[in-house]
Write a protein that binds this DNA or RNA. Structure first.
Lengths: 110, 110
DNA sequence: CAATTAAATCAAATATTTTTGATGTAAGGA
DNA sequence: TCCTTACATCAAAAATATTTGATTTAATTG
């Protein structure tokens, strides 16, 4: 059986690799979530309440979308008191997307 | 207004860029379609009837999924008589995915 | 020309995702 | 301690996507 190795994972079968990538691409397959990724990246680190003001989106909706990105390991979460700060998982994004496309998440010449 | 440039497109707004990438990631956000991409890439060029035998999938289902990949410009189609031959759009895939990930579509050391 | 094959498309049924508004939990401040 | 704020989660409704089986179109074959 052919093996695939995915970032930070032990080698796996093609079929399991497809399932893992399916989840990551599903997370990226939404323009609102791409916008969230873009903003999170620009700001470096953002909490949910700040995001609700930046993008016009209800809190529960935002939490829902953030969870999808987080579960796909595209975002990192850090809890400080009652706040949750989200950051881009740069390592993961770099391993997934082309350099060119990573620029979508680095719009200010970073 | 900030501009983004996507492969083979005139510069566009972030919001339009997000919509275009949404479509491409949606196409990749399915393990069966990832498997199709993988097989198409291994074979170089495949027609629908060959694919139905390689992966266990009905003809109409396969046509449905191929259309999604084609509409997202991830596959190229060539009609020869009653046959449709599909190929990976390497240029597009290379511009979208990391080199590492492109290997998922080049499993035999190509 | 009739029969067969390849593949796209369609409409209905099914399944999955997303949205919405409400509720729960825990931390911080008065 | 009570009130407020931040955020996650929940269940029901709404919106999308996928599957299924049938039909259509057009090219090939006998």
């Amino acid at each position: 059986m052919k093996e695939f190795t995915i970032i930070d994972q032990t080698p796996t079968t093609p079929s399991k690799a497809f399932a893992i990538y399916e989840k990551k691409f599903k997370a990226l397959a939404d323009k609102k979530r791409l916008e969230i990724m873009n903003i999170v990246c620009q700001r470096g680190s953002v909490c949910v309440c700040d995001l609700t003001e930046i993008i016009d989106m209800s809190q529960s909706k935002l939490s829902y979308h953030l969870k999808i990105l987080f579960d796909a390991k595209l975002l990192i979460k850090e809890n400080r008191g009652t706040w949750s700060y989200y950051q881009l998982n740069e390592r993961e994004v770099n391993h997934l997307l082309s350099e060119e496309l990573c620029c979508l998440f680095r719009p200010s010449g970073r």
